[in-house]
Nucleic acid binder design. Structure first.
Lengths: 155, 155
DNA sequence: GACACGTGTGTGTTATAACACCTATTATTC
DNA sequence: GAATAATAGGTGTTATAACACACACGTGTC
């Protein structure tokens, strides 16, 4: 049932190592699943990264977070958080206010409209996750999560 | 040792489902590993996607492949393969020639320079793979590959 | 051989990513 | 308390991704 990546990509040559095979499987799987998930976000006018920011800010509460804190909590590394937030502010999903205490800081908060959008997305996103990974049982999901965690913990 | 993603991202709320946790782990792991691998490519003036194209064309041999065949074999989905190949042709890594048999087709082949670059990259890329995933044993790598394959095979 | 259709490729445009650099404010050192 | 470093944020520019569209060629049908 589980398709072999080499067949999937019509590759003629075998992988040179198990590490290489794992890395390519990882890239392809992430790209495929993110692409499908991206369709859900796109239907609501945002990108996956923007969805991530909204969830981070919802979790942060009414005080909001400054730019670098948002950056550090993003799942994927984004070098230009300023303009990402610019676009979201333009879309009225977040609001920003310079701190009075430390005038270097700019707190970013999620707006009511941003919260509303997130609520609308909660179910379709959960459905998409279930569609894509629901056929793995709990043991398999836990094992996958564990192995991915190990993969990130290279010395 | 394997870090918990929730801690890693300073998340206050638990994941809503195992599927969600697996998806986020997948995205983050792929982004991290691809980013580090990207540094290797960047040091040689190309991107990860371009490296992928070179490997595809090396595997295809002297007849080359047409654009859509390249597109279908790419690990990640790229909508604009034409200009990707334009840039690589500009860099003398590939060459293109319109087919005499079917004048719609344009065969793309890897050049000697492209082959040379690939050879230079073979070792550093293998090293990077080993650095990043070498601490997993064979059983773990096979298990990871198997689970990722299953994740791609959603109905 | 004229027509509709499918396929392969390329183009125009906009949005975003990526990278290097710059400014403002605060903390630190002497 | 003046100089220096460190931190937070923003800007300018280029490259690439993403999307819709248009053109060229081949195939099948009548």
């Amino acid at each position: 049932m589980a398709p072999d990546l080499r067949t999937e990509l019509k590759q003629t040559k075998p992988f040179r190592s198990l590490e290489e095979e794992a890395m390519l499987n990882l890239s392809r799987t992430a790209a495929l699943l993110e692409h499908r998930l991206g369709d859900v976000f796109k239907a609501h006018g945002i990108t996956g990264t923007q969805y991530n920011v909204l969830r981070i800010l919802r979790g942060a509460g009414p005080n909001g977070l400054c730019r670098n804190e948002v950056r550090d909590r993003l799942v994927a590394q984004v070098p230009d958080v300023t303009r990402l937030l610019d676009r979201m502010e333009e879309a009225s999903l977040v609001e920003r206010e310079r701190s009075e205490v430390d005038r270097r800081l700019v707190a970013t908060r999620i707006t009511k409209q941003g919260l509303k959008l997130l609520e609308q997305l909660d179910k379709p996103v959960a459905d998409a996750h279930h569609d894509q990974l629901g056929h793995l049982n709990q043991t398999q999901l836990r094992s996958l999560i564990e192995l991915l965690g190990m993969a990130r913990s290279a010395t």
